[in-house]
Design a binder for these strands. Structure first.
Lengths: 90, 90
DNA sequence: TCGACACTTAGCAAAGAATCTAATTAATGG
DNA sequence: CCATTAATTAGATTCTTTGCTAAGTGTCGA
């Protein structure tokens, strides 16, 4: 879960997530929307992927990324838990 | 909103948030639960405060911190938005 | 008003993260 | 098998974050 929070701490990565709401996109399609280098975006994608927030699927020469909504769901559940007092731990 | 995500990226700060679920605590009460220095915890508290995630209220010599649940609610709403496809922007 | 208590801020060193360029891997078409 | 396109990885640099010690602020009681 730590990876998830750390991944979302970066504004560019959150922007990538927002972009992927509208459906899967290739690495190149994502990269061309940002001022940063393709290499930099690729790095961001790997951070998001390692956190489980996005899924990668190769399609020929391209790699298609899409949101992993179940992890977002887990995150939302996690946060909901926090704002309910008297939770299991602590 | 960027501050909120950045604040939650640190595990110690998330732990503080979890602790505050069970009700307000003073700076000292919070600090004594962590291996870090009081000064370090104080710094974490200021990050959480700047992000609006917690509220500080002075009570004599003590300062009492409590969760600001409305900001968490906003965060949850924000995330829910992400996992619904076809949002307003992009 | 002095001193002790509760807490925060400042300043610094060390660890981590973001981004760039250049090199590398992988798939495809000729 | 070579060139091309698509994308990632490596290495270097710079910026940010973290956590420490030490100094400062604010409050209270004697």
């Amino acid at each position: 879960m730590n990876d998830v929070f750390r991944a979302l701490a970066d504004p560019t990565r959150r922007e990538i997530v927002r972009l992927l709401r509208n459906g899967p996109r290739t690495s190149g399609e994502i990269a061309e929307r940002f001022p940063s280098t393709w290499a930099t975006i690729s790095r961001h994608l790997s951070v998001l992927r390692d956190a489980g927030l996005i899924l990668a699927e190769r399609d020929g020469q391209r790699i298609r990324y899409e949101l992993n909504t179940t992890v977002f769901q887990d995150l939302v559940d996690h946060l909901m838990d926090w704002i309910k007092p008297g939770g299991r731990r602590a």
